[in-house]
Amino acid sequence: MKYHIISIGKIKEKYLTAGMDEFLKRLRPYGQVEITALPEEKMPDSPSDAQKRQVLDKEGEKMLGRVRDGSYLIALDVQGDLASSEKIAAAIADLALHGCREISFIIGGPFGLADCVRRRADWCISFGRITLTHQMIRLLLLEQLYRAIKINRHEPYHW
């Protein structure tokens, strides 16, 4: 299976990049993981609701443009379905069973996701109702992918 993470913004914190590197290393034997980080759109100071929507729409279209044909699209969104590790693992196993070769994940930038992304997504999931930075979500997504693979392989996560 191929996994494609499409996100907005760069990771600046070393502890997050170190964690991401660790999970990318752990995931390497189980599938290909590609990360596409796109630049943030400039948000004006004290933006109006219309300006916020315009920036989100630009970012959304940019991210959707990177989703390959045939890829199953999962958007990470605080408004999405609350997804347990087991539910994510089951969904990945079901997609693989039905011939899915690639899953794309979209993570919005600091201002969230555009409605066009939510509409296009095959599934919108949330890791909880708390607010986390978009950079942290990238790390958590990699960890959850690794955990899902271990669950599906009936292998221990901790050793």
Rank of each mutant, 00 (worst) to 15 (best):
Q79H: 14
L56I: 04
Y157H: 01
Q54W: 12
K62V: 06
V117M: 06
A89Q: 08
F105C: 13
G108V: 00
K150R: 15
S71R: 08
H158D: 12
L16A: 05
S126P: 04
D49V: 14
Y15R: 01
E41P: 09
I130K: 05
L73C: 02
L97T: 15
H158I: 01
E22M: 03
K52V: 15
I106H: 11
R28N: 13
R153S: 11
G31I: 07
Y72W: 12
I151Y: 05
K52N: 04
E59W: 06
R28Y: 07
L141N: 00
R138N: 12
F23Q: 03
D45I: 08
K52L: 14
A90H: 06
L82S: 15
R153I: 06
L142K: 01
D69V: 06
H4T: 08
E40V: 03
L140M: 15
D94L: 11
I5F: 02
I6V: 07
E143T: 04
H158L: 06
R147L: 11
K10H: 13
R68S: 00
I151P: 05
R101A: 13
S48N: 11
E143W: 08
R119T: 04
D122R: 00
R118C: 04
T133R: 13
C124H: 02
V33E: 02
R147Y: 11
I5S: 12
S46L: 15
T133I: 03
R53Y: 05
A114M: 11
F127S: 07
R66L: 08
P29T: 10
E143L: 08
R26I: 06
S7P: 01
V67N: 00
V55S: 07
I151V: 13
F105D: 11
E86C: 07
Y30L: 09
A121R: 10
K58R: 15
A93I: 03
E155A: 09
A75D: 13
L97E: 15
I103P: 09
A148G: 14
C100K: 11
S71N: 14
G112V: 12
I35V: 14
L16W: 05
V33C: 00
K10N: 14
W159R: 15
H158M: 03
G112N: 12
L24I: 01
E41T: 11
C116F: 04
G128L: 09
Y30G: 05
I6M: 08
G108W: 06
V55G: 08
L140F: 15
M1E: 07
K87Y: 03
D21Q: 08
Y72S: 08
A114G: 13
L95V: 10
R129H: 14
E40A: 10
A37Y: 01
F105T: 12
Q135L: 07
L82T: 15
G112C: 13
D115S: 13
D69Y: 05
K12F: 00
H98I: 05
L95P: 12
R120T: 01
P39G: 12
L113A: 06
V78H: 07
T17K: 02
D21P: 00
D57K: 15
I106V: 13
I35F: 04
E61M: 14
L64P: 04
L73Q: 02
P29F: 15
I130V: 04
K62N: 05
I151N: 10
I151T: 10
H98S: 08
D81F: 06
G60D: 07
I151D: 10
L113W: 00
I137P: 00
A37R: 09
Q135I: 04
L38N: 06
L64R: 10
G65Q: 05
D69G: 06
A83M: 14
I11A: 02
Y146M: 14
M1K: 13
